[in-house]
């Protein structure tokens, strides 16, 4: 029974053996790690479908404004709270503004916040994790204590607190849009680096004892070169997976803030903000809330599935 539990549905032992045999015969170029990872990713059907869905969302958000040319703040009291029609495929809100146009423009911000916050979290996490993993003793223990401390902070209350305290001063420096963007990205990223740091540290602890690292060290490679050229590339698989999930989490966090009325100002219609505006009109205009909510849900769900597919593709050792 012990051997009968597969590491993952996409790992088929017979096919893997066959691939290994074929790989041994075939020239090395036809069997690169990237190609191997893509082959494993493709087996996760939902992840492939999700990649398609996310591409469509990203395409719509990036190129949408060139195709759907209605302005997001075009107030039209003649077309107040109109259900979906040909002129307004997603309907209009209480000021007669086109919801499709608002979702396209808000999606840019929502996705950008997700990506930027992920970059911040991964950068801080890799830096802290690598430092802790390479140094023993007090530095390692101190950094991990810090990570544990941050893990036991209540994220949403703290996020709300920081935004409440710093919003006005950043707004005056970077403008209403830029200030809130920088603040939200920094805080979401700054509260989510801990899982990445722990992953990177664990990888470093095992990798730095491996023979190839020892060989590089024996050849006179400096500490920095060891980290950047030898250890880090081998530790990246789980980090990419964690980073993907972080994008989804950051999108939810930003939407939550905007939904609570404490995120972006009303003239920047992120998906959460549109939902916040729509929630008092549930009885007369349910479509107004359904479209932005579904947009958040679809984006987050597809990113989570892609993360799951990437786990199969990049992290085959991990047994769920």
């Amino acid at each position: 029974m012990a051997g009968s539990t597969l590491a993952s549905p996409s790992v088929d032992p017979a096919a893997a053996d066959e691939a290994a045999r074929a790989g041994a015969v075939r020239p090395a170029a036809a069997f690169s790690p990237a190609r191997d990872a893509w082959r494993r990713f493709r087996r996760h059907r939902l992840a492939v479908v999700s990649l398609g869905v996310l591409s469509i969302i990203a395409f719509a958000v990036v190129f949408g404004p060139f195709i759907w040319r209605l302005a997001i703040n075009d107030i039209d009291f003649a077309a107040q709270l109109k259900p979906p029609s040909l002129a307004h495929p997603f309907g209009t809100d209480d000021l007669g503004q086109d919801i499709l146009a608002r979702l396209i423009s808000g999606g840019r911000i929502s996705l950008a916040v997700g990506l930027a916050a992920m970059v911040v979290a991964v950068l801080v996490g890799v830096l802290v994790g690598a430092t802790a993993g390479m140094s023993r003793g007090h530095i390692d223990a101190g950094l991990m204590w810090l990570a544990d401390l941050f893990l036991s902070l209540p994220q949403l209350p703290l996020l709300l607190l920081v935004i409440y305290l710093f919003r006005d001063s950043l707004k005056s420096i970077f403008g209403p849009e830029g200030g809130v963007f920088i603040l939200i990205v920094a805080v979401i990223g700054g509260l989510r680096w801990m899982p990445v740091a722990r992953l990177v540290r664990a990888q470093f602890l095992s990798l730095r004892e491996k023979e190839f690292v020892e060989a590089a060290r024996a050849l006179g490679a400096s500490r920095l070169r060891l980290v950047v050229h030898h250890i880090l590339p081998n530790a990246l698989g789980p980090v990419i997976v964690a980073g993907t999930i972080d994008v989804a989490n950051a999108i939810i966090a930003e939407s939550t803030l905007s939904f609570l009325g404490l995120g972006f100002p009303p003239d920047i219609p992120t998906w959460g903000r549109v939902l916040f505006d729509a929630k008092d009109y549930l009885d007369v205009a349910p479509y107004w809330a359904l479209f932005p909510g579904s947009a958040i849900f679809l984006a987050v769900l597809s990113i989570n599935f892609i993360g799951d597919g990437l786990r199969d593709a990049l992290d085959p050792r991990r047994v769920m």
């Binding site: 549930l282 349910p286 809330a289 769900l301 989570n304």
Partner: peptide, 18 residues
């Protein structure tokens, strides 16, 4: 399970109210 934790609580809440 994936659908469950990808649905943000504020959206599920609004859906249930609806």
């Amino acid at each position: 399970a994936f659908i469950g934790f990808s649905l943000p609580t504020f959206f599920t809440g609004l859906l249930l109210i609806l």
